[in-house]
């Protein structure tokens, strides 16, 4: 959060790249009714980060995600799952998968909103094997349960850890910790 009186963060007013707008339109056409919104983002740092200049944001229900991922991988050539992010808004959990294409240099971000008590969602590790450990990390630290994940164990914390420490309501040094 910015302190009061701070100058506002400059927002890019550059138009999104045309291939990015076309991809968003193709996604909306192919997944009409399943995908909530697919929009091309404005370029963040024009001229510096080419990958971030083209950015498609897809907000969707998590039931439509496996079809969308397979479609992106097979038809659009997105060959790399570069990041899995989970955000804890206190009433819901938002999980974002960042998919990257080495041919077109476009990053697609699929985001799904989950129930905070029981965050279940499909796994992208069936489409991209590299998403395996990224999703294990989100399970470890945020408690997102990827239902068809092949090997859903903790990856960073010890196996006997209780709770998911990057949740906002995680109690610091809760009972049972010995140090």
């Amino acid at each position: 959060m910015l302190p009061p009186g701070a100058p506002p963060v400059p927002v890019s007013t550059l138009p999104p790249a045309p291939e990015c707008v076309e991809l968003a339109a193709r996604i909306e056409e192919a997944f009409k009714g399943k995908v909530k919104a697919a929009k091309a983002m404005n370029p963040l740092n024009p001229g510096i980060q080419k990958e971030l200049n083209v950015f498609v944001d897809v907000a969707t229900d998590h039931k439509a995600l496996p079809d969308l991922w397979r479609w992106l991988r097979d038809k659009e050539g997105f060959d790399h799952c570069s990041l899995v992010v989970a955000i804890d808004h206190m009433d819901r959990i938002e999980v974002k998968h960042l998919l990257f294409s080495y041919t077109s240099h476009i990053t697609v971000e699929t985001s799904a909103t989950l129930d905070r008590i029981d965050p279940l969602m499909p796994s992208a590790s069936l489409a991209w094997r590299g998403a395996n450990w990224l999703e294990r990390e989100q399970f470890d630290l945020m408690g997102v349960k990827f239902v068809d994940h092949p090997d859903l164990r903790r990856v960073l914390l010890p196996d006997d850890w209780i709770g998911h420490p990057l949740r906002k309501d995680y109690e610091f040094r809760q009972a049972g910790e010995w140090w």
Binding site: P165, F172, R173
Partner: peptide, 12 residues
């Protein structure tokens, strides 16, 4: 010191 995963000193 305030990390959830930090041992507070090796002498522990």
């Amino acid at each position: 010191f305030e990390g959830y995963n930090t041992v507070l000193g090796a002498d522990q």
